[in-house]
Computed example of a mutant assay.
Amino acid sequence: MARDRFIPDRGLTTRMAVTMTLLGVVYVAFVIALVWVGMPWWLVILVVAGFAVVQYFASDRIAMVAMGAHEVTPRQEPELHAIVDRLCAMADMPKPRVAVARTDVPNAFATGHSRKSTVVCVTTGLRRRLDNVELEAVIAHELSHVAHRDVTVMTIAGFLGIVAGFLVQAGVRFAFIAGGGRGREGGPAPAVVALLVVAVSAVVWVLSFLLTRMLSRYRELSADRAAAHLTARPSALGSALTKITGDMARIPTRDLRQVEPFNAFFFTPALSGEGFSLSSLLSTHPPVEQRLSQLAEISRRLGREG
Rank of each mutant, 00 (worst) to 15 (best):
R182S: 15
V203P: 06
S277W: 07
V120T: 10
A82D: 15
S201H: 10
W36Y: 14
V119L: 06
F209G: 02
H113E: 08
L135Q: 12
T245A: 11
I251T: 03
A63D: 06
S222Y: 01
I45A: 15
E220A: 04
I244L: 04
F266Y: 06
W205D: 06
L167A: 07
L221P: 04
S235G: 15
A108E: 05
P96H: 07
Q258Y: 05
I32V: 15
L130G: 09
Q55Y: 00
E77R: 09
F109K: 00
N263S: 15
G180E: 12
A223M: 03
A82G: 11
R10Q: 14
V65E: 13
S201K: 11
H70F: 12
G187E: 14
V193W: 02
V54E: 00
L281V: 12
V153Y: 00
F176W: 14
P261E: 12
A137G: 02
E77S: 12
G24W: 01
I45H: 05
E79K: 10
M248V: 06
P188R: 13
M214Q: 08
N263T: 13
V288W: 00
V133T: 14
F267A: 09
A66Y: 07
L80D: 01
V44W: 07
T231H: 07
G50W: 02
A226K: 02
T284E: 05
Q55V: 09
L292W: 08
V84F: 03
C88T: 06
G68D: 00
A249I: 10
V44K: 08
I139K: 00
A199D: 03
R257W: 01
T14H: 12
T245S: 09
M64V: 12
Y218F: 14
Q294H: 08
V48A: 10
D131R: 09
R254D: 04
S208Q: 03
A228K: 03
V168F: 05
T19M: 14
E71L: 11
P252C: 07
Q294R: 10
F267M: 08
E134P: 04
R219K: 12
A199Y: 07
R217T: 03
V44G: 05
D85P: 02
P234V: 10
R10F: 15
T253C: 03
A29I: 08
V35H: 05
A49G: 14
I251Y: 02
R184W: 11
R304T: 15
L256V: 01
T124Y: 09
T152M: 13
M248C: 05
A91E: 02
V288P: 03
V193S: 07
A170T: 12
V25K: 13
R86A: 15
V72M: 08
V146F: 04
R15P: 04
M90C: 09
P252I: 04
G24D: 00
W41C: 09
P78N: 12
N263E: 13
S299P: 00
Q258E: 11
V172Y: 07
Q76L: 12
V44T: 14
Y27E: 07
F265P: 04
H229C: 07
A194D: 02
R254Y: 10
P287K: 01
G161E: 09
V119G: 04
M214K: 03
L12N: 00
R254K: 14
L237F: 09
L210W: 11
F176V: 15
R219C: 13
F166H: 13
A178F: 08
D131T: 10
H229Q: 06
